[in-house]
Structure formats: structure tokens, C-alpha cells
Design a protein around this nucleic acid. Structure first.
Lengths: 231, 231
DNA sequence: CGCGGCTTTGATGTTCATCAAGTAAAGTGG
DNA sequence: CCACTTTACTTGATGAACATCAAAGCCGCG
């Protein structure tokens, strides 16, 4: 973890979330004064479950994973955070300590804002609070949707689900560099590493995807989508 | 669904949630004027997924289930709401329509408060907003915890998980009347009805529980608890 | 009474994790 | 830069876990 030398000024941040639109000059400058800007490398761990919650994290660039760590062999990935996400928003208001761990998947850059600063904003600015509720709601919806969709699928559908979401939601392109190992794909959807590989091979043989090292090309998005809803 | 003739006055409601502590007389009377009080019988459906969100529901007594209904054969139960829960709080701020369905498990009695009324409170009262965030956070935490705990267990652990939670969290007693059918237990944890029965029989034969019709007595809570964390 | 839903038990087959074993790729220290 | 270790990836074989099918008893309800 390395602090950025020349942090962005919040007032003119090009990545500024809609969440902050409702803030006045004074409130925004308070955010600015109570934040740090940080970069991390792939694999570095930002948060360990059980750590005290001290900051509110806003991801500027890169990808993070949120995961459980109870048993190292049975690590489960809960969600992937994307640029412009508030990370680990889930239990910031219900808990003093993090419930899940976070690691950088790619190079990442993010802001750290003191939680007390955020709590004050909630208390004093109802519109901000409502935006925050909305933000949180959307994040949760997404996690639950995935979680319950996956539960009704078996392994082919599950692997298809990951590939389809990466293609449509994370990268917005049929071709992309897979940011996860086969093992991590398995940990996202509850399939063993070996079977992730087998299923991906089948998809390749069936002409649904093309694999070139870490690069994945979705050749038949529609067939992939169908797999995510019926098996 | 039947409206209650003599609704409780919110000002002196004995069930009043901590959420409303921060409200002044005027705000509370606004809630009072914008609410209905309703009772329903077991099996009645309050909400169908896709319905417009018009009210904020506060459960006074009884149990509700929140479930997916995409495929009737593959209904999945997401959570059980208890008295004093705000029901379906999850997507009230991110969505205009319900994403999940709700049914009464037992006889239930609840209040329906106009969502616009709640939104106004959030906008005007930061403390209320913060309490709401906290409430929502806790509800979500609980659902995610269950969801990811269950994913790491196989069927014995899963069934044990339901029984243990019912005993400790819902009823707070080692003896209770099982409010769910075997099928519903299965839908909560992703196990077939037949296997729920088989596992419960094994637990009975092993002396972990006693079954008398709908009544369940947990004879060995500790063994049940161990099953929920290791298999 | 008979019908449909819930419960129960046994038998069968599928899905999938796990084990084993080998290859490729990527870091590590001399 | 090369031997060495470790980690990721791949394939096949095996067995366990579990869904599904089938059949029968049970209960509440119209």
C-alpha cells in the first residue's frame, strides 16, 4: 500500500460519485481534508476480516474482491468491486469491525475517507443519506441477485454466469483479460477449480468462447446467456 | 388481508421500533396518519415480486417469508422476518418495484406506512436516516451471513443450521413448533424435501432432536451447533 | 368419501468434489 | 541466467453426496 503524493482535489474530481452531488462546498472540502488517496498492487490485501472499520473506501480504478476467509481452503468470493464503487459499504453502519476481507485483483487506486466524516454528513444532510441508502441498496441487490441466481444453477450455468457478468457488466466487451484465476472463479460460484477448467474447456470446444492465455473472447454471447438461466 | 378496525396510536405503540425514537411528535403523528394496520392468515401472500412498492412494512406479530418465485418448482426462501422487523427494507431505496415475494407463515399483524412518508423523514431527519441505514445494514448482514455460511455446508449442516437458528434466534427456546413445512426448510437451504426428512430422522435417531408432530425439541443444542459449523 | 398436499422410505442415477499425476508458467535465490 | 521451487493449469479415474423417481401412508378439507 502506498499513499499517492498528489491527491486529487475532491472539488474537481473527475470520478466524483453522484453520491456527492448533494454536498455543498463546505461539506465537500471537509471530505477533501479527511481523505487519503492510495494505490495497491495485485494480490495486496486492504482489509482483513475482523479489522476495525476506520475508513470509507471509494474505488477510483482497478478491481477488488470481497471475500470470506474463515477457512483458507474454503475462501468464498462475495463480490467484485469496480471503479466508482463504494467498497464494503455493507456493514459500515451496523458494525465496528469488518466482516469480510478485501484484496486487490489488479492495480488499484482508491480514496479513504474517515467514517466519522461520512456519518456526520448523513446526520446533517438528508439528501446525502438518501443517496447513500440508494447506493447501498443497489450494491446489496446485486449481491443477493447473484447469490440466489447461482444457487439454482449447476456448474455449467455457474461458470457461464461468471464469464457472462465479466463480459457484460465489468468489461462491457466480448473480449477481455480474465482478471481471476480458475480457482477464484470457482470460489465465486462454488465449483471446484478442476471443474471450472473442465467446463471452460467444454465451452471452448463448443465454440462458445475462445481462450488465448488470459484472454477470453465470448464468441456466442447468446448461448452463454441461455446457460446462465437454465443450467 | 384485513384492515384492523382500531389501529394502534403510533405515539404510544408498545412495539415501537428504536428507529422511531429520533422522531419528534410532529413527525410521529405524520407516520400515524399515513399508516394502515393489517392482519393476514397463514399462506396469504402480501407481495408478489414485480408489484409496485407503495408501503414500508413493519411486522408487529407473526412470521413472514421473503422468497423468489421465478420458477414455481424452484422457489427459494431468502429470509424469515420476525416481529419488529422492517420487511423488505432491502430495495426500498433502489427500486420502484419489489424484487421478491412475501407470504405470511403464521397469523401476522403489521403496519403499512406510505413510502413517501419514510422518504421525507430521511430527507429531513439525519438521525432517522442513520438509524435506517443501521437497520438495513443489520438485515443485510444477516442474510449474507446465512447465505455464505450455508454455501460451505452440506446437507446435514444445512438442516442443522435451520433448526439451530429457529431455536436460538426466532423462538429463543429449545422447544418450538416448526412453522415451516419440510419443503420450505429445503427451500431455505437448498436441499431436497426428501433429504430434509431423512436428515431430520437421523437427528432424531441420534438423539439430537425429538419430533412430535409439528413440535421440535432440541435435546442436544451443542451437537446441533457443531453441525452448523463443520458439516 | 375422495382429492390434493405433506410426509416418509427405498432404489436409482447424476452431478460433482476429490485424488492423483503430469505439464506449463512464474517467481526466487545463487 | 540457470537450477529450483512454487503456483497455476490440465486431464483422467473414482467415489461420495445428493437429486430424483416411485410408491405408499397420512391428514385436513370440501
Amino acid at each position: 500500500m502506498k499513499s499517492v503524493d498528489t491527491p486529487t482535489n475532491c472539488m474537481q474530481c473527475p470520478l466524483r460519485s453522484s453520491l456527492f452531488e448533494s454536498l455543498g462546498r463546505k461539506e465537500l472540502s471537509c471530505v477533501h481534508l479527511n481523505k487519503r488517496e492510495v494505490v495497491m498492487e495485485p494480490g495486496e490485501q486492504l482489509v482483513r476480516s475482523g479489522d476495525k472499520i476506520t475508513h470509507f473506501l471509494y474505488l477510483q480504478s482497478g478491481l477488488l474482491k470481497l471475500f470470506t476467509e474463515s477457512d483458507s481452503r474454503r475462501e468464498q468470493i462475495i463480490s467484485i468491486s469496480r471503479p466508482r464503487d463504494f467498497v464494503g459499504l455493507l456493514n459500515i453502519f451496523s458494525d465496528t469491525h469488518h466482516r469480510y476481507s478485501m484484496s486487490a485483483i489488479t492495480d488499484v487506486r482508491f480514496c479513504m475517507i474517515e467514517v466519522d466524516c461520512i456519518k456526520q454528513l448523513v446526520d446533517n444532510n438528508g439528501f446525502f443519506a438518501r443517496e447513500l441508502l440508494k447506493n447501498m441498496s443497489i450494491a446489496v441487490d446485486h449481491i443477493l441477485k447473484d447469490s440466489y441466481n447461482l444457487r439454482s444453477l449447476q456448474m455449467h450455468g455457474r461458470v457461464a454466469y461468471v464469464l457472462y457478468e465479466l463480459s457484460t457488466e465489468i468489461f462491457g466487451s466480448t473480449g477481455f483479460e480474465l482478471p481471476l484465476s480458475r480457482k477464484e472463479v470457482g470460489q465465486m460460484v462454488g465449483v471446484s477449480t478442476e471443474n471450472v477448467i473442465r467446463v471452460m474447456s467444454e465451452f471452448r470446444q463448443d465454440g462458445i468462447i475462445r481462450i488465448e492465455g488470459k484472454k477470453i473472447y465470448v464468441l456466442e454471447p447468446e448461448r452463454l446467456r441461455l446457460l446462465t438461466i437454465r443450467g
